[in-house]
């Protein structure tokens, strides 16, 4: 059954904010820039850009390979950059880490403001422990000064045990929770947001451009909340 999205969002939420506003890029200053998305020159005015660099996935025969993604070559830019790698497998051959490191260094030489590397992997809540172990190992081999960010799924906050989330805190510098699935904000977002109080790692919320969103007051008082990142779309 397809419920009207907004009504579903509202369940148990009074007084309700106006969930009517689609996310507009112009209102934010941090963005994900994915392969195939035309950003235009105004992207240089952003504060932070999460730039897709590659996809790590098994090929048809199960060998894990790194596919370069995105269009920009290392060079000087205004925004602080995070180099994003989309991972569909965590079974990385050593060359992958070597490549990511080299890419990070190349960017750091060309542009002073490279924060680090972000891994975009849809770890299931049950798989959080092993993902945390993977990230600890990755953290150890990344060069000094390269911070580590991960994207997170909203249900980590509700279904994951607190110790699973804590397990991440030693190795990652920030988590960006994706509030959307496909083009829309997830239905039960309010229930998830209510549980963000459990998160003790610096985090941001990822919004989809064009999805309906309303800022929530509770976040303003959360010391770990660092702001929003908008996933740009064309």
């Amino acid at each position: 059954m397809r419920l009207p999205l907004l009504l579903a969002l509202l369940a148990g939420l009074f007084p309700a904010p106006a969930w009517t506003d689609p996310v507009r890029a112009a209102d934010y200053d941090a963005f994900w820039l994915w392969a195939g998305v035309r950003a235009g020159p105004q992207i240089e005015a952003a504060k932070i850009v999460y730039l897709l660099q590659g996809e790590i996935a098994p090929d048809g025969e199960g060998r894990v390979r790194l596919k370069a993604r995105g269009a920009a070559e290392p060079g000087p830019h205004q925004p602080t950059l995070w180099l994003v790698y989309r991972a569909k497998s965590l079974d990385w051959p050593p060359e992958v880490v070597a490549h990511i490191t080299a890419r990070f260094e190349a960017w750091r030489v060309a542009s002073a403001q490279v924060a680090g590397v972000q891994i975009d992997f849809d770890a299931s809540t049950r798989g959080l422990q092993s993902y945390a172990a993977f990230l600890r190992a990755l953290r150890r081999v990344l060069p000094a000064g390269c911070r580590l960010s991960v994207t997170g799924l909203m249900d980590w906050t509700s279904r994951g045990a607190p110790e699973d989330l804590d397990a991440l805190s030693g190795s990652v510098d920030e988590v960006i929770f994706q509030t959307y699935r496909g083009r829309e904000t997830v239905r039960d977002i309010d229930a998830y947001l209510a549980r963000l109080g459990r998160v003790t790692i610096p985090f941001r919320l990822g919004l989809a451009e064009g999805a309906l969103w309303s800022p929530t007051d509770s976040l303003a008082h959360n010391p770990h909340f660092k702001g929003y990142v908008v996933f740009l779309r064309n």
Binding site: W34, A39, L52, A71
Partner: peptide, 14 residues
């Protein structure tokens, strides 16, 4: 020939 051809921050290569 490609040097500098992809200097712009973009997701779609132009």
């Amino acid at each position: 020939a490609e040097i500098g051809a992809f200097a712009a921050l973009d997701g779609a290569p132009e």
